[in-house]
């Protein structure tokens, strides 16, 4: 099924998408202290990418992605699991938060919960894209 594509939307998506992605990373990184977090960040990023995918084409989005969505899901789960297991290596209980002493500029304090949140971020992006992109690609066939 071919759909007429809106040039306006396509152009807007091309410029909006990177901005929204940056915003999503911003949401992710400051989420521990202000409004935001991995879930919101991931959803915003996924919306941005899907907007791009719908405005241009699923194939264009697929070309843009450096990784398969399902690999993103795996990566996210791996990141979360790593953050959970790192304290075990350090002799602390599973999922204990470990923090670096000195805060980094912009981001603030860095610790395993941030890695965990990044895991959430990637899982959410991966899941949403995996579902919607599969549907969209099937639609495009």
């Amino acid at each position: 099924m071919k759909r007429a594509r809106s040039i306006l939307l396509a152009t807007a998506a091309r410029y909006l998408m990177p901005l929204m992605l940056i915003f999503s990373v911003f949401l992710l990184l400051r989420g521990h202290n202000e409004i935001g977090g991995g879930f919101v960040g991931g959803l915003v990023a996924a919306s941005a990418l899907m907007l791009y995918g719908i405005a241009l084409s699923p194939a264009a989005l697929r070309n843009l992605l450096p990784l398969e969505p399902r690999l993103l899901v795996g990566l996210g789960l791996l990141a979360a699991l790593t953050s959970a297991l790192l304290p075990v290596l350090a002799g602390r209980p599973f999922l204990t938060g470990l923090w670096l002493k000195t805060p980094l500029p912009v981001i603030g304090k860095v610790g395993t919960p941030l890695l965990f949140d990044m895991g959430v971020y990637f899982v959410v992006i991966g899941v949403v894209l995996w579902i919607l992109l599969s549907l969209a690609e099937e639609e495009a066939q």
Partner: peptide, 19 residues
């Protein structure tokens, strides 16, 4: 080390649930 309590619950206090 977090001021957003909701997010701290999600990624730290109840991290296992989130996993």
């Amino acid at each position: 080390n977090g001021r957003n309590i909701v997010n701290v619950i999600l990624v730290d206090f109840r991290g296992l649930d989130t996993l």
